[in-house]
Every structure is written in structure tokens, then in C-alpha cells.
Design a protein around this nucleic acid. Structure first.
Length: 211
DNA sequence: GGTAAGATCCGCT
DNA sequence: GCGGATCTTACCT
């Protein structure tokens, strides 16, 4: 009686533009298996980032060493380091000549609460464990080591069908923390879910000391 | 070689 | 609600 692993989403799932993939990711299950523990979460908030046409996308200025994975095959993880201390996890999607991705902004941990809580020592409630993109990456144990990992059938990640919410519960709005293309409603979330991160408009960084 | 801004989070007021 | 932490990336000279 071997337990059959649940069927993963088809690879063609990611062979669509980010704006089409993003809302379709809501309610899906992402499982991450690492030596430090296995964590599975239900995605509740995502953001789409397109390619050269999207000034907010890391792919906007062309291929670099950092964003090379975005220009590779869809269905892989793009992990970047930001603000000097945080990692964020994206899923690469769209045709190879239209590099894009979906930022995973929030989710509800449904398995592996213990390892997630160990990594998120400051988190008080279960709903806070993956509430926000950097928190989500930390709860899963993701860092740059996972950059480029296969999300469909890789040893680390596995994306499962899960239970998509009814269309009426899917909401959209401006992307968070983005100064460019702020009027593009490419952030999608499950309405009323407590794990969705609070919206915060982009705030300009204060001038360095010394006036 | 220097510098400014960044797909953020947390603690304090 | 506001500002500090902390460092990588990319653009400018």
C-alpha cells in the first residue's frame, strides 16, 4: 500500500502569460521538501510580472545573472534577494521569448507548521507564517539555493491542484510595493482570507542621513 | 569605482 | 503609523 503522490499540475499550466497563470494559482498547493523539513501551503495571494513590456518586472531591463532563470523554461522557481535580508519566490511562466513570472505573496500553511514556525520565530499566529512574500519564502525554507528548481516535478517543489476558490472570491488590485505601473491590477488574492497580506502602496525611501 | 533604490519585515511610538 | 535594518543590483561617471 504505497501512497500515491497526488498528481502535480501539468507543465503546460505555466506555458501561459503571467497574468493568466496568477489568478489560476490561487487555492493551489505548493509543497517544499528540504532537509530542514517539509512545508505545504495553500496559495492565497499572488502578483503577475510580465517581461520587457512591464517596467515593474525584473526582466524589464533584459537578462542578467540575477534574473537569468526568468528567461529560461517555464515551471521553474525564480528566487531573488532583496532589501538586504529577504528572499522572494516566483514561478516562471509564459513562453521563453516572453519572460515573466508570478510572485507568491502569501499562503496558508496546511502541513509542516512546526518547521515553518521554527524558521519564523517571530510569528505568533499560524496565519502569519506565510503572510507576505518574504515570510512565505522563509516559512518554506527557500533561499537562492532553490533558484532555478523545477516546480512541476522537481525534488524540492511540487505544485498540486488543490482547491481553487469560486471565481466570485477572487479579487484583483494594484501590485504592492511597486512604483512603476502602479495602476496595473495584477495582484490577485482570495477575498476574506486571513493569510492575505495587507496592501501597502509603494513608499519612497527616505533620504540617507546627513540631510 | 561610487551611489541610489529596491516585488520587505519588524519593533517602537 | 513610521523609520531602521541590511546588502545586492544596476546605472552613472
Amino acid at each position: 500500500m504505497t501512497e500515491e503522490p497526488a498528481a502535480a499540475l501539468d507543465r503546460a499550466f505555466f506555458d501561459r502569460p503571467p497574468v493568466a497563470v496568477a489568478p489560476d494559482l490561487l487555492g493551489r498547493l505548493l509543497r517544499c521538501t528540504l532537509p530542514s523539513g517539509t512545508v505545504e501551503l495553500r496559495l492565497t495571494e499572488v502578483e503577475a510580472y510580465a517581461g520587457p513590456d512591464d517596467p515593474a518586472s525584473h526582466a524589464y531591463r533584459g537578462r542578467t545573472a540575477r534574473n537569468a532563470v526568468m528567461f529560461g523554461p517555464p515551471g521553474h522557481a525564480y528566487v531573488y534577494f532583496t532589501y538586504g535580508m529577504h528572499f522572494c519566490l516566483n514561478l516562471v511562466c509564459g513562453p521563453a521569448d516572453h519572460p515573466g513570472g508570478v510572485l507568491l505573496r502569501a499562503g496558508r500553511v496546511i502541513e509542516g507548521v512546526d518547521p515553518a514556525r521554527r524558521r519564523r520565530s517571530t510569528s505568533r499566529r499560524d496565519q502569519d507564517l506565510a503572510q507576505g512574500p518574504a515570510r512565505l519564502a522563509l516559512a518554506l525554507g527557500v533561499d537562492r539555493t532553490q533558484d532555478g528548481e523545477d516546480v512541476v516535478a522537481g525534488p524540492v517543489f511540487r505544485l498540486l491542484p488543490g482547491s481553487p476558490p469560486p471565481p466570485a472570491q477572487v479579487r484583483s488590485g494594484p501590485r504592492t510595493g511597486v512604483s512603476a505601473a502602479a495602476d496595473t491590477p495584477w495582484r490577485f488574492w482570495i477575498d476574506g482570507d486571513p493569510t492575505v497580506s495587507p496592501y501597502r502602496a509603494h513608499t519612497a525611501r527616505r533620504r540617507p542621513a546627513g540631510r
